[in-house]
Simulated assay, not measured.
Amino acid sequence: MRDAVIVDAVRTPVGKGKPGGALSGVHPADLSAHVLKALAERNGLDPATVDDVVWGCVSQVGEQTACIGRYAVLAAGWPESVPGLTIDRQCGSSQQAVHQAAAGVISGQYDIAVAGGVESMSRVPMGSSFAGGSYGAPYGPLVAERYHHHFFNQGTGAEMIAAEYGLSRAQLDQHALDSHARAARAIDEGRFKSQIAPVTVTDAEGNSRIFDTDEGVRRGGTLEQLAQLKTPFQADGVVSAGNASQVSDGAAALLVTTSEIAAANGWTPIARFHTGTVVGADPITMLKGPIPATEKVLRRSGLTLDQFGAFEVNEAFAPVTLAWLSATGADYDLLNPNGGALALGHPLGASGARLMTTLLHHMRDHGIRYGLQTMCEGGGMANATVLELI
């Protein structure tokens, strides 16, 4: 029986996804190439031995179109014989990329694969692929009719989830403050150093510097400050920019192979890909998928929640993670212990790989046997992954 193990995982620091953000001057193909090259250099990987590069990206338009997974390979200077694949499962695109790489390795279609993803939201703004389209253009008239012409909006969905689970503005804002505090502590204690591949960037004045620290983390915030922010999705709502994920730029990559091939190459894997699954959920609230995804992956893995020492649940909006906590009864202290997307940012197509990179290094650093990752996805879907420390 072939297995799938993750040898290493690396990411860029996450930049603010706006003009002037640290990574805004880097083409997304080049940003992808940066982590591909870092992964190869860290592990003595001969790129010619890679059977496929499976790459997540959400806004596949403009600079991120035409199979950016392929152009990432070429930008990295890897042999032309190495193919690339681009996946869109919305925010879970690069988590799904890991699932497909693992499936390919287990089935024997691949011996060595690289999975990951990228998003440059400063250069390819969120929703730009829909620009100029009429109402319902991404969904078509049959979907619009099925859901009674309801407007699909993640922010509105987050408001609906907050109402369903009785989550107050103060609870959401406190969750955001906790995320920033955890991320700041992780930075101060050097927890991200082993996973980050620093990027040399050039500012508008032509000055070069090394960018090596996640850019979106804020320190010293208060509930009083966050309470002043508007709630754009609902006039009397609870979801604001302060308790929603940040638009961001970033990339991440993971090296996936079998235990036998890893040993033959002298690699010591971090973890085994234990179980992966995906579910569909209500596309109107859209963001509750991590709850049934967790239930499904626990059934398939044969594990119980109390066997896990860490959870990475994407903080797309604060109601998503707090609803997941309420539904599962998980320990809040084990959720996103190094901060989440509320603080670190959410570079859409890279986020699944970024979360998994952070989870893997945290598991190794703290001797945690089982880790679980799940994230909500546009259209009402969610992936869930169980990793087992080696």
Rank of each mutant, 00 (worst) to 15 (best):
A353V: 07
I291P: 04
P319N: 13
A316D: 02
T294C: 14
H361R: 08
L303Y: 04
I291G: 04
H361F: 06
G349R: 08
F317E: 07
F317D: 03
G349A: 13
Q307D: 14
L325W: 00
H362P: 00
P292E: 09
L355R: 13
G349P: 12
T294I: 08
S326N: 14
T357H: 11
M356A: 13
L322I: 14
A350V: 07
G339E: 04
A310F: 08
D306C: 13
L287E: 07
L287I: 12
A318G: 11
R299C: 01
L303V: 08
F311I: 09
I291M: 06
R300Q: 15
F308H: 09
V320T: 14
G352V: 02
L344H: 12
P319R: 12
L344N: 12
G309T: 08
V320Q: 11
P319V: 10
G349C: 13
A330V: 13
P347V: 02
G352N: 03
L335H: 05
L305K: 15
T358K: 00
E295R: 15
T328Q: 07
H362N: 02
T358D: 03
G352Q: 05
P292K: 05
L334M: 09
L359C: 09
R299V: 14
M286S: 05
T294D: 11
A330L: 10
Q307K: 15
M286A: 05
G345S: 14
T304D: 15
M286E: 05
H346L: 03
A343K: 11
G340Y: 04
